[in-house]
Design a protein around this nucleic acid. Structure first.
Lengths: 159, 159
DNA sequence: TCAATATAGTTCGACTGACTGACTAGTTCA
DNA sequence: TGAACTAGTCAGTCAGTCGAACTATATTGA
């Protein structure tokens, strides 16, 4: 619009978009692709929100409260998501032997069989990114993000 | 758990988490912080989904269809979000002089007054990241993400 | 020991966000 | 002009989310 080429003004210098936005764009693309890969594999009875919770379930089961905390939702929301996952046969609730109030949410075989689909797509994405950026930039990207996690992830202690 | 220090095995090498996950973590933190900053400033009648749409509105107004496409939601969803934004006084719908079917969604003064709050928090975050990573890594991060946008953003043409 | 308090999880009710399908009104083009 | 297309809305449905209130078990302290 204001295209008058003022004599001495430097080249218009496209305003660097906020790094957070760039990150959001890439992260959204990843989610879209993983969801699409699952659907292509015939898995359409699990939603993104459910998958996010399921991804947090540990080897020997995890308490609902912990899932809620790590997925950053309330207990009520986690209950609802786990309900659906349970109804679809992806998780089961078993009593926690160490606390009568608590129950452990565990992945079923059905859920574990799904993992390779998601992981496979993740690896495919990672390969594509490396091909686009080159190994050096990819390494730098990983390094920066790993470092950034220290100040952006409240739950960076588990695997 | 499997802590047996086998003689020749290299240091256990923590499995590099998927880069997409790292990006998701950082992006989520950004969103949380911007939302919190808005709330701290007394703005609590606008949701994240609404803000995402509002952020796509151009200087002279944008068509609902374009907003929907860029925000990656259906027209119906965009209609609903714009309805709420309009009810809260953040946007207005005016006829598109160039197409009788269309209407342009425009930000009101009330919405424009909010921008500095969000932008301010973004800049604060960016500064913190730069302080944590150092200028060199920050530059590399920005470079990698900008490059990545070419293959992850279907709408990378506008500002 | 046992009452007060805290914690794990659920249920209920309300709202937002998101989608599909069906519709109205205006535009394009053959 | 009329058929096909496009912009936007309305209606209906469901998932996700939260706050509040509740049950059952655990913990604590006088």
């Amino acid at each position: 619009m204001t295209a008058e080429p003022a004599e001495t003004s430097p080249p218009p210098e496209p305003p660097e978009p906020f790094v957070g936005l760039l990150m959001f764009i890439a992260a959204r693309d990843v989610e879209n692709r993983v969801v699409a890969a699952m659907r292509d594999a015939g898995i359409d009875d699990i939603t993104l929100a459910q998958a996010r919770v399921a991804a947090r379930i540990g080897e020997h089961g995890t308490r609902l409260t912990d899932l809620a905390e790590q997925a950053q939702v309330t207990k009520q929301t986690a209950t609802s998501l786990v309900d659906r996952l349970e109804a679809a046969g992806y998780v089961e609730r078993v009593p926690d032997p160490r606390d009568g109030r608590a129950r452990l949410v565990r992945l079923t075989h059905k859920a574990k069989a799904l993992m390779p689909v998601a992981r496979g797509e993740e690896q495919r994405i990672e390969k594509e990114w490396e091909a686009h950026l080159g190994p050096r930039r990819m390494r730098q990207l990983r390094e920066a993000l790993t470092l950034l996690r220290e100040i952006t992830d409240p739950y960076r202690d588990e695997p």
